[in-house]
């Protein structure tokens, strides 16, 4: 008789690796052979984990079709087993997995589409930071501007792709009426994913992307502004700051170590 721990290990391996023969001896033959009893669990685990991936990656699924998606999911699941009792945490590594998945090699844009879908998923469940208020900013002496460190909203995610992943995402929405054709020569895109009323995607200029990426990485405003202007010579920093404050992308501001904005809720 196996210990409870040994039984659980054998069960898990039997589900994920099909190495079920050792486990079958612990199943009481009932109205069916042990393998059929066990198969209910095996199918259910793969089915519910696959459905969890489909819920996060609907566009990825649509691009490759149900059969291929299931095949990819069945390969992904044993390699990246869930580490949480909350299914919303599952699927984080799917984009990276797809980029090394030989059968998907031709679909060079697919990992970036999956990355976008994971960013939306994370944004959907993220917390809310108090938006930066103009009064907060106006209370800071001008000589300290260069050392300001902003933070982005917890729901903000930045993405850059060499492929038109926004167009690909749009034409693969169930309610999209136009042509599903996309030409990859259209080129890449830089995006901000953020949740306000709902999760939104916004295209970013090269300068905006560099500015926000630098801020997100913890750079000072002076460093971020330099990165933005390096990326885009005609960058309008004034307009960009006004826009991102208006959008609520900037959550709070730190001057040196001192937090002068409102704390994140």
């Amino acid at each position: 008789m196996p210990s409870l721990l040994e039984l659980q290990r054998q069960f898990s391996e039997g589900v994920l690796r099909s190495a079920g023969s050792k486990f079958m001896q612990h199943i009481r033959p009932g109205r069916f052979a042990p393998a059929r009893h066990f198969q209910v669990y095996r199918n259910n685990v793969f089915e519910s984990l696959t459905n969890a991936l489909k819920a996060v990656y609907p566009v990825t699924e649509r691009l490759v079709g149900d059969g291929f998606f299931r095949y990819a999911a069945a390969s992904y699941i044993p390699l990246h087993r869930p580490e949480s009792g909350n299914l919303h945490d599952f699927g984080e590594h799917f984009a990276g997995f797809l980029s090394g998945f030989p059968p998907a090699r031709e679909l060079v844009y697919l990992p970036d589409v999956a990355r976008l879908e994971w960013a939306m998923h994370e944004s959907f469940h993220a917390g809310v930071g108090q938006p930066l208020a103009l009064t907060t900013l106006s209370s800071i002496p001008a000589e300290e501007y260069g050392n300001l460190r902003f933070r982005l909203q917890p729901s903000a995610r930045l993405l850059a792709s060499s492929y038109p992943i926004l167009r690909i995402w749009q034409v693969n929405q169930p309610d999209h009426a136009g042509s599903p054709d996309v030409n990859l020569e259209e080129g890449g895109v830089k995006l901000l994913v953020i949740r306000r009323q709902e999760v939104e995607m916004r295209t970013l200029s090269d300068g905006d992307y560099s500015l926000l990426s630098a801020i997100d990485a913890g750079s000072t405003l002076a460093q971020a502004a330099r990165a933005a202007m390096d990326a885009q010579a005609d960058y309008d920093l004034t307009g960009a700051l006004a826009s991102q404050i208006q959008l609520g992308t900037l959550a709070q501001v730190e001057n040196e170590k001192k937090i002068t904005g409102n704390p994140v809720l």
């Binding site: 039984l7 898990s12 669990y41 685990v45 869930p82």
Partner: peptide, 24 residues
Amino acid sequence: WSSVDGSYLNDLLPLPYTEEALRH
């Protein structure tokens, strides 16, 4: 149960109904 050695199967998996499992 639904997890072992830190990885989850995210399903309601059956326990053996033994004294050991009961105490646990």
